[in-house]
């Protein structure tokens, strides 16, 4: 699928380029802009990004694959991230994680067939004081329980 940055995205990119002395340094912010527009980082996105920043596509690939938050494949509309690191584990994170898996019928980094939900087991998100926690897209849900997670998912199912 062909990919072109929208005018709006290009404006954002121009603003970002002013912050750094080299074009390559804008790579991470540009990838964020691309992901916001496209939902994930496809080969075409990488090609286009490389062209705009005048770097090799391989360098873009290297960066995309290094960071976990750039999606290498399309994810669900609601990307559910469950932290299972120690502080959350002490407070039942694995029960929540298994519960979400069962409820949605998907495993780690999988997406439901209707593309509504995807699941990811993530490392510490910095919410240890309010453990356990999940994040859905950009939003944190802290001090949660299996019941609360089920409720959140059901509400999302109804809403869209």
């Amino acid at each position: 699928m062909e990919f072109k940055f929208t005018t709006e995205s290009l404006e954002k990119i121009n603003a970002v380029l002013n912050r750094y002395p080299t074009k390559q340094a804008a790579l991470m912010p540009v990838l964020w802009i691309a992901q916001e527009q496209n939902g994930w980082i496809s080969n075409e996105v990488m090609q286009e990004t490389a062209k705009i920043l005048e770097i090799n596509p391989e360098e873009v690939l290297g960066v995309v694959t290094f960071y976990t938050m750039y999606f290498k494949k399309p994810m669900g509309k609601h990307h559910i991230q469950v932290c299972t690191n120690v502080s959350c584990m002490f407070r039942g994170a694995y029960e929540i994680y298994e519960g979400v898996k069962k409820k949605l019928g998907i495993d780690n980094m999988e997406t439901t067939s209707d593309r509504k939900f995807s699941l990811e087991e993530v490392e510490c998100m910095g919410a240890c004081g309010n453990a356990p926690m999940i994040a859905i897209n950009e939003e944190y849900f802290e001090n949660i329980s299996s019941e609360k997670v089920n409720k959140i998912i059901e509400d999302l199912e109804k809403s869209a």
């Binding site: 912050r19 750094y20 991470m28 960066v63 960071y67 993530v122």
Partner: peptide
């Protein structure tokens, strides 16, 4: 003085000061 925010993308190693710099430079950290 100008202050800019650089948003990471999920890599623990970026907290290490030299990888943080590589990350800002737009490289693998």
């Amino acid at each position: 003085c100008q202050i800019y925010i650089h948003k990471g993308a999920g890599a623990y190693i970026c907290g290490e000061e030299s990888s943080l710099m590589n990350s800002i430079e737009g490289k693998r950290a």
